[in-house]
Amino acid sequence: MTTTTAPPRARRRPARQALAPYAFLLPFLVPFVLFTLLPVGYAFWQSLHRTERTGGTFGHTHSVFAGFQQYADVVHEPFFGDSVVRVGVFALVQIPVMLLLALVLALLLDSTVARLKRFFRLVYFVPYGIPGVVAAVMWAFLYDPRLSPIVDLLRSAGTRVDLLGSHLILFSIGNVVTWTYTGYNMLILYSALQALPADIGEAARVDGAGGWTIATRIKIPLIRPALVLTGVFSIIGTFQLFTEPQVFRTISTSVTSTYTPNLAAYSLASGDNYSEAAALSVLLAAVTFLLSFAFLRLTSRRQR
């Protein structure tokens, strides 16, 4: 490369170079502001206002500032506590089960014990390629007593179960979520395991450590960032739970229109109660954000 005198127009370049990053950012930032920040801001604004009519049912509507009244109303609705407790229980049971399964599969595929690794990795990833709605529709048929081979099998084994009844429906939903996302989480953990230097395991093996010790004492602590990431994604997903219950609602009376907070927000919006729907959406987004943030904080502090 030569360091001779630059061509004369180079003098203008710093200015152009200074503007370039903004020019590259703008095409992303405009839709980002319009379709991510603005809706959140607008939902917040709407959640602070109430629509009132003057002059009877057919009179003009106008919005009135109501402060945090909508939030108080939503929180005091009977469905609010029920749905929050429901996703809370779901999170406490389903997330650990799914992540444990994903972790065990990832460790096995990363170990020297497993055979046919490529095949298994492909198979575990198949469910993630199936859209959530289609997965839920498929499992809905598999649970439906009219068609279900599972119910048939259990019946021939002498047990009668109603997978769509009020006792088992939450478990049935949990199964669909576990089925859909285990492979995805497995792949995140597996990628992290593969990124570890190979000599770590080898050194431990030479020192006489068994597979179990290597996995629990060395590998799992080292992939902690990936585990935290899967944890955060799972928490976000659980508190937004919508698709599966919405699909099961069409075949099971056990799933009410306010089964999860997100479903309740949808029902409020379809009932034209936009203000309360907005309040619930904002509340839900804020809680999800805080929970993930707290989880990140908690797990990263323990690491030090």
Binding site: L105, L109, S111, V113, V126, A135
Partner: peptide
């Protein structure tokens, strides 16, 4: 030294196969 024994290979493969059945059955 430390190479997996036959038993652990069978157990591990068994688990992987079970998980594969779970993933593929609905499909």
């Amino acid at each position: 030294r430390g190479a997996p024994g036959r038993l652990s290979v069978v157990a591990a493969t068994g688990f992987l196969v079970l998980a594969a059945c779970y993933m593929l059955l609905p499909v």
